[in-house]
Design a protein around this nucleic acid. Sequence first.
DNA 1: GATTAGCACTCGAAGTGAGTGAGTGCTAAC
DNA 2: GTTAGCACTCACTCACTTCGAGTGCTAATC
Lengths: 348, 348
Amino acid sequence: MELTERKLRILQAIISDYVRSAEPVGSRTLSKRFDLGISPATIRNEMSDLEEMGYLTHPHTSAGRVPSDKAYRLYVNDLMEKHELSIAEKNLIAERLRGHVNEFEDTIKHAAKLLSEITNLTSFAMTPTKNEETLRFINLLPVDDRTVVLMIVSESGKISNTALKLRVPYTEEGLQLLAKNMTYKFNGKRMTDVLKENIISHFESDIAAMSMLEENIMPSFMKTLEDMLNVNLYMDGLTNIFDIPEYNDLTKAKNFLSLLDKKEDFTKKLLEREDGIIVTIGDENADDMMHDCSMITATYHVDGKMVGKIGVIGPTRMKYDEITSIIEYLTDNLNDTFRLEASINEEE
Amino acid sequence: MELTERKLRILQAIISDYVRSAEPVGSRTLSKRFDLGISPATIRNEMSDLEEMGYLTHPHTSAGRVPSDKAYRLYVNDLMEKHELSIAEKNLIAERLRGHVNEFEDTIKHAAKLLSEITNLTSFAMTPTKNEETLRFINLLPVDDRTVVLMIVSESGKISNTALKLRVPYTEEGLQLLAKNMTYKFNGKRMTDVLKENIISHFESDIAAMSMLEENIMPSFMKTLEDMLNVNLYMDGLTNIFDIPEYNDLTKAKNFLSLLDKKEDFTKKLLEREDGIIVTIGDENADDMMHDCSMITATYHVDGKMVGKIGVIGPTRMKYDEITSIIEYLTDNLNDTFRLEASINEEE
DNA sequence: GATTAGCACTCGAAGTGAGTGAGTGCTAAC
DNA sequence: GTTAGCACTCACTCACTTCGAGTGCTAATC
């Protein structure tokens, strides 16, 4: 059977009505609400065809029709028109993202919050993966006679440090030398690679440095690197699902929240997703628990290198056009923000 | 009317049964389940008295009795016996808290997780307030020709740093001097006090330092101090409430989760609570939204100075004896963990 | 031949009302 | 003071009815 122009119009109308109302759509309602120029009976025939083709389903005999995952996929791929944000919406996004310019994590966290507020869905934002991030600078700073601070600066300017209690006394020159040495050895290397290496072997020639490293510094160095590579996941709008009819059921709400409760698993799923604006609908999601959810994610860039993700999750019945536009605009803004920062740095 | 020995016994039995079953307790059930040596009729009379005295309530005429907030308060203050944890439980707690020794935030986060797992309630843990925390060391480190790192070390060893882009070129000596100067001026001062001061005025004598500070360093210095003073709140077991009959209602579950969604507000509430093990029952909670919740919090100490809080929140019907014991044991362990770290430091 | 009106049929949702049982309060006997 | 007995209450369950939105089929119409 062929998807005629008229079938497409009807399908679009059904999707539009169902997305708004969350109620199965009947033929009479449809003919009243939309100016399709055909009678309910004709619509019924077409609906029956659409159901046969897999675009509609039936909760029960005497109920209206509901779009299937396949219908949403068709809509997202072919039917959906670009939704233009109003100036007010654009301004809101731009303004709310400003004012956090200096604090990366804060900006990300706030972006998630903003996204959930605008979409009324549950949102999440992941800090960038740092697979390409290289080391730039390592320092060991004396604080008191047994305490030194290990400081690691990455190429993108991220700094991390740890206070170390040394088990042996140190000399300031020894420390300085060791730090210089480490910087020399690791500068420009990717952090992920350094983690895999046998660090100690780099210092075989210098017995003193080696023992110092092995005994005191190595474990913290590795740990700190790992920490720097870790991604964080922020979520917002968790309670929004209570306002969504699909989750007007305790077990469903529970399942949904349980899904998000396991942040590690969820992060893993996000990492596996492709870059760019990605929409996965219902069964397209690998996870069983997400078979009646849709997820829209987008990637943002920092310095054109590191890649983070931001997105929303909700029922398959969502305003795909609006939400993709919002996420697109939001990530554009994020990219600008993080590029802006970089360019200011270079400018000066 | 007087609270006779027998009335207390009956009340205790009612509380015990209700806490277990979440069902209003009737006189007949009570006489069957507990060996009180009196007939249901007598129990009814006593129950009626207890209701008059405000210890019991009645959902409706033909239902059993439910303990009131006042009853729980009496129970917690006078009736409750110390609940001894089993060795298995103690071991579980001790073991699960180990293995995070080096990472403070991680330990706290994990303690919250552990607490929610053991109690099947929603738990939270707040990192310590640092009102007493003093500054120890300030450094300015050159990274490249326009970038320096501002590094602040607090008395307890917490380090924080920020990369600064200077608008004017610097000399290495100038920076070093300024850092030494700042350390000298602020060393030993409480961070909260420093934030209130007019920092610039300390450097009136040195015009160059002053302009450098004012233009480039001050804002970041203040911001970083504020960040260091901030407390973090971790929560866990949010979805546990779905297993609690009291929240078998969407609006109630929603209210509960909304309450916890506003982390800032919740943190504020925690900060206002007194130290030690504190139990607040139902109406005793200032917040309207918490009138049918009870909250148990305890304080833990780091280095005997900084004070953080950890606790659970759930329905007023909870096992007060068990939970207070668990929290007590948990905070004892936390205190040990954080004291241990300190003592190792001193030892060496 | 496509479209439409008409009509029987389906099925969930909401409402009704009897029956059930756990509970109370009162009274009178022990 | 305690208890047995009894009438009464009230939420809960469940079968039953009604209602209405919706379908699918058929026959008439354009």
